[in-house]
Design a protein around this nucleic acid. Structure first.
Length: 195
DNA sequence: TGTTCGATGTCCT
DNA sequence: GGACATCGAACAC
């Protein structure tokens, strides 16, 4: 199994374009237990300084958001309730934007994903949510700041996506008018989308 | 040092 | 459709 890892330069595009471009790409994590991967089928864009729903709204720079002020293509991992969520950093240095990866279509290491996600009954339950996919691939806060263009954690060429749908983002009801921005993207009709 | 609150998932009705 | 578990980060003292 050889994958073509997307180069560093792939991440040098606008955050909205990147959110769409990431659909169909393959997210891979190699661990001592084995390799797990899945096609990205759902993303959300968070546009830093001017986006009330973003953690980096108003250029808020803290220990948590620090990595978003750095280089594109790195990993912004943070803990939400008891789960870990991951973003791909974009926007360029000193512009804190990112793309949240919300759902995957499982490809490799499906048995291992079941083992890590005991509560999942069907394949559809393995990675159909931002907290689910990190558990299935064993991505944690320890991956904060790593890049997505070199093993063991990387994004590679995947499949063609026939049609993309867009709509409001999920779970940000307290974000003023930003809650209505149509910055969530998913592959139309894909059963692994979170909702 | 204490309090508050989520970019969620799961179970229950 | 609703309750709740449970953790770290942010912020107020």
């Amino acid at each position: 199994m050889t994958h073509t890892i997307l180069p560093r330069a792939f991440y040098d595009q606008s955050t909205l374009d990147l959110a769409k471009a990431l659909l169909g790409k393959l997210l891979v994590h190699e661990t001592s237990e084995g390799i797990c991967s899945g096609y990205i089928v759902e993303t959300e864009a968070y546009r830093g300084p001017d986006d009330q729903a973003a953690h980096s709204y108003n250029n808020l720079r803290t220990k948590r958001t620090e990595v978003m002020f750095g280089e594109n293509g790195h990993c912004y991992a943070h803990v939400m309730h008891t789960h870990c969520l991951i973003n791909v950093v974009s926007g360029g240095v000193d512009r804190p934007e990112g793309v949240l990866i919300r759902a995957l279509e499982p490809v490799d290491g499906i048995d291992l994903m079941y083992k890590r996600r005991e509560k999942a009954k069907r394949e559809k339950d393995l990675t159909s949510g931002p907290g689910k996919l990190t558990k299935a691939l064993n991505i944690t806060k320890a991956d904060y700041g790593k890049s997505f263009f070199q093993p063991p954690l990387y994004i590679a060429e995947g499949k063609e996506v026939s049609q993309i749908s867009m709509g409001p983002r999920i779970g940000i009801d307290n974000s003023g008018e930003a809650k209505d921005y149509p910055w969530r993207f998913w592959e139309t009709g894909n059963p692994y989308v979170s909702r």
